[in-house]
């Protein structure tokens, strides 16, 4: 954790500098008759962020914050595995939305999580993976009139059937 804390502070300091550079593309000073320039607000806030990372580093050096005294790893073996399995599953879910539609990706993600990570029965898994996307479809598309991504063209015939029910 001790190494992690200072690395994080360093990354955040670099990010603050990046934000300052980006903000400085607009005026960061006071323009007479117009008030503060468009970049002033984010620029000075990013400058405060940079100063804060300096203080965080100073506290790290003095070992006053709990992570700076901790010898534990940031992620242990379980943590790494958990992050890869769950975070990776989510990544796959979001990546698949533009391919097999929001509802299709949702169904696959539920099968993956409930069956393979949760080790629940196939019955429960399929009930959730089929029931939930259908319920969401009628709630969002039917009641709330919010259109979710439908993925590539091959999903069209399937959605035409569902839309016929709503309209």
């Amino acid at each position: 954790m001790r190494l992690g804390e200072i690395v994080t502070a360093g990354i955040l300091a670099l990010f603050s500098i990046y934000l300052m550079v980006e903000s400085a593309k607009l005026d960061v000073g006071y323009i007479s008759g117009e008030g503060p320039g468009g970049g002033a607000w984010p620029f000075w806030l990013s400058a405060i962020m940079l100063v804060c990372t300096g203080f965080i580093a100073f506290n790290w050096y003095r070992k006053t914050s709990p992570p700076s005294r901790s010898e534990d790893p940031v992620l242990d073996e379980f943590g790494v595995k958990n992050l890869i399995l769950v975070g990776g599953g989510l990544l796959g879910f979001i990546a698949l939305i533009d391919v097999i539609s929001m509802y299709g990706a949702m169904a696959l993600f539920l099968i993956y999580y409930v069956r393979f990570l949760g080790r629940h029965s196939w019955w429960l898994t399929l009930a959730l993976a089929i029931g939930l996307p259908i319920a969401f479809f009628f709630f969002f598309e039917g009641l709330m009139r919010i259109t979710m991504p439908k993925g590539l063209d091959f999903t069209e015939p399937f959605y035409n059937v569902l839309y016929d029910i709503i309209y």
Partner: peptide, 17 residues
């Protein structure tokens, strides 16, 4: 193990909506 995927699904759908 059922609540967590539901929350993830709600998050993704809510974030899009």
């Amino acid at each position: 193990t059922i609540l967590a995927p539901l929350i993830f699904v709600l998050s993704v759908v809510g974030g899009f909506a």
